[in-house]
Simulated assay, not measured.
Amino acid sequence: MKFGVVVFPGSNCDADCLHAIQTVTGQPAEYIWHKTGSVDGFDCIVLPGGFSYGDYLRCGAIARFSPVMRPIVEFARRGGLVIGICNGFQILTEAGLLPGALHRNKNLQFLCHDTFLRLENNTTPFTCRAAKGQVMKIPIAHGEGNYYADQETLQQLEANNQVIFRYCNPQGEVTPAANPNGSLNNIAGICNRQGNVLGMMPHPERCAEAVLGNTDGQLIFQSLLDFWQRRCG
């Protein structure tokens, strides 16, 4: 399985993602420059965190028009695996691969700390190693992580089981106090209707090794590898 990590001007989690993927999965991973016109040869594309194009205009709005995004959109629509983390999630919404938008945090402050997530759907390629309801500790680092969608879209997300992660307390209870940024329905991550595109605000690559004091993030990368191995027989 070959991973590609996209590098935009302003990306700052690209090296973290590449290292975590190689360490956790043992699979090949390469950078993909934002001006690249093809993603042929890759099995999973990662849009990492950071501040693409300095977050000018709004988060992800300019990155949406990078040359690499056209082949990524086509790749995703053919069923290719795509994960956007933090700024990558913002880019996926701007590109129309995921519904909704990420607004400024409710307290208007940049947040950088551990959060607890409850896994709502373990049938996706990104979560197939986990148990539904499993609680994970994964850090956030964002100023615009407040997930918003209109009520019709929210209802569709819930009905189609597209909400993958919710902010919760350590006991797995989804409460207002556990919501760090004001996201509707405590949403921390969603997938598209087909389940092959995931966007999440927390950073699994920052908690994927024991040396970091937490390995909960390994689940995302291990799930992808398990899914791919089953797909390939």
Rank of each mutant, 00 (worst) to 15 (best):
V7H: 11
G10Q: 12
S11K: 12
S11V: 10
T23P: 03
A29C: 12
G37W: 09
V39C: 04
F42Q: 03
C44P: 05
S52G: 13
S52W: 08
D55T: 10
G60H: 12
A61V: 12
A61N: 10
R64Q: 10
R70V: 14
I72W: 07
V73L: 08
F75G: 09
F75K: 06
R78I: 05
I83G: 01
C86R: 07
N87E: 02
Q90A: 04
L92T: 07
T93N: 09
A95Y: 07
A95K: 11
G96S: 10
P99M: 04
G100N: 03
H103N: 13
N105W: 08
N107E: 06
Q109L: 15
L111Y: 08
C112T: 08
C112W: 09
D114I: 06
T115V: 11
R118F: 01
P125V: 00
F126V: 04
F126N: 05
T127H: 04
R129A: 15
Q134W: 10
A141H: 12
A141T: 11
G143M: 09
G143Q: 10
G145T: 03
Y148P: 02
A149T: 07
Q151E: 15
Q155E: 14
E158T: 12
A159Q: 12
A159E: 06
N160M: 00
V163C: 05
R166T: 00
N169M: 02
E173I: 00
P176Q: 02
N181C: 03
S183R: 09
S183G: 15
R193N: 05
V197C: 01
L198A: 03
P202K: 09
C207Y: 02
E209G: 01
L212K: 12
G213T: 01
T215F: 08
D216W: 05
L219T: 12
L219W: 02
L224S: 07
D226R: 13
R230D: 11
R230S: 13
C232S: 14
C232L: 13
